[in-house]
């Protein structure tokens, strides 16, 4: 189960130089910066939702709230009908910059979420299965710094999937990758999604990523952000803009809405 229900969520940050980590919710000396303004969003089980929006609009903040890393100022958030009160291995966050622990090998990183498995043989089997799934066999005992950027993302994906979470939360998972690796990763994530049918929440800056990968595209406005577009994308894969005029129209619309043009 991976049904995410966001109701009227607002988030304010404190504009202070010295943020006391212990009372982040209090704001005695400083003005409040509203980031999210009464967001309503429902992501159904097995859906891949892509969140688009201008830089600094609070997409990542929403992700962090859903992951339980941060708390909303007001509003309610439920996953599978239960209120979220902190991080959980049911919804794994894939970080924008490598979240792999650099002092652990790929194998040890994938093992992180499998500590509860007592039987070592069964555990090794699962680890190897996921390492093979992301095609990193042969690199099990490499450290993250010995891998390329794309391989690091794949290792992190393997680590996330190995826990078998209902929800995968990805914060710009392709940022900093070269074009070809980006294309390949995109394909792999779509394949993985079709195969494992997990609920995926992905923040991206790339309109094409959102349209080619997502079952749903959500567009945020500038801060304090509201949802401008929330649209189901029921197109079959592979999606090609040239062969799908309707998709192309949505693309034009989104480019216009975000105030950029792709024909330069």
């Amino acid at each position: 189960m991976g049904n995410i229900l966001v109701k009227q969520i607002s988030k304010e940050f404190c504009n202070r130089r010295h943020v006391n980590r212990d009372n982040d919710h209090l704001c005695p000396h400083g003005d409040v910066i509203p980031v999210l303004n009464k967001i309503d969003l429902e992501i159904k089980e097995g859906e891949m939702a892509c969140l688009l929006g201008p830089s600094g609009c609070g997409k990542s903040t929403l992700l962090r709230i859903i992951a339980g890393f941060d708390k909303q100022t007001s509003g309610s958030l439920t996953i599978n009908g239960k209120a979220v009160d902190g991080p959980s291995s049911n919804n794994i966050f894939v970080f924008q910059h490598s979240g792999l622990l650099p002092w652990m090998t790929v194998w040890q990183n994938v093992e992180l979420g499998l500590r509860h498995i007592k039987n070592p043989e069964g555990k090794n089997h699962v680890i190897l299965e996921y390492i093979q799934m992301v095609e990193l066999d042969g690199f099990e005992h490499h450290y993250p710094y010995q891998l390329s950027g794309g391989m690091q993302r794949r290792a992190e994906l393997a680590r996330a999937l190995a826990v078998n979470p209902d929800i995968l939360i990805m914060d710009e998972p392709f940022s900093g990758l070269d074009f070809l690796t980006h294309m390949k990763m995109r394909e792999e994530v779509v394949n993985m999604h079709q195969f494992l049918e997990k609920t995926i929440l992905m923040v991206t800056h790339d309109i094409d990523d959102a349209l080619i990968m997502g079952d749903r595209v959500v567009v945020f406005s500038n801060r304090p952000s509201e949802i401008k577009v929330n649209r189901r994308l029921d197109f079959s894969h592979p999606r090609i803009f040239e062969k799908n005029p309707e998709l192309q129209d949505i693309r034009d619309e989104l480019f216009l809405m975000l105030g950029v043009s792709y024909g330069v």
Binding site: F69, G86, P87, S88, S89, F95, G99, L101
Partner: peptide, 9 residues
Amino acid sequence: TYFYVAANF
């Protein structure tokens, strides 16, 4: 980030 990873797992 590493503490978030820890909390997440």
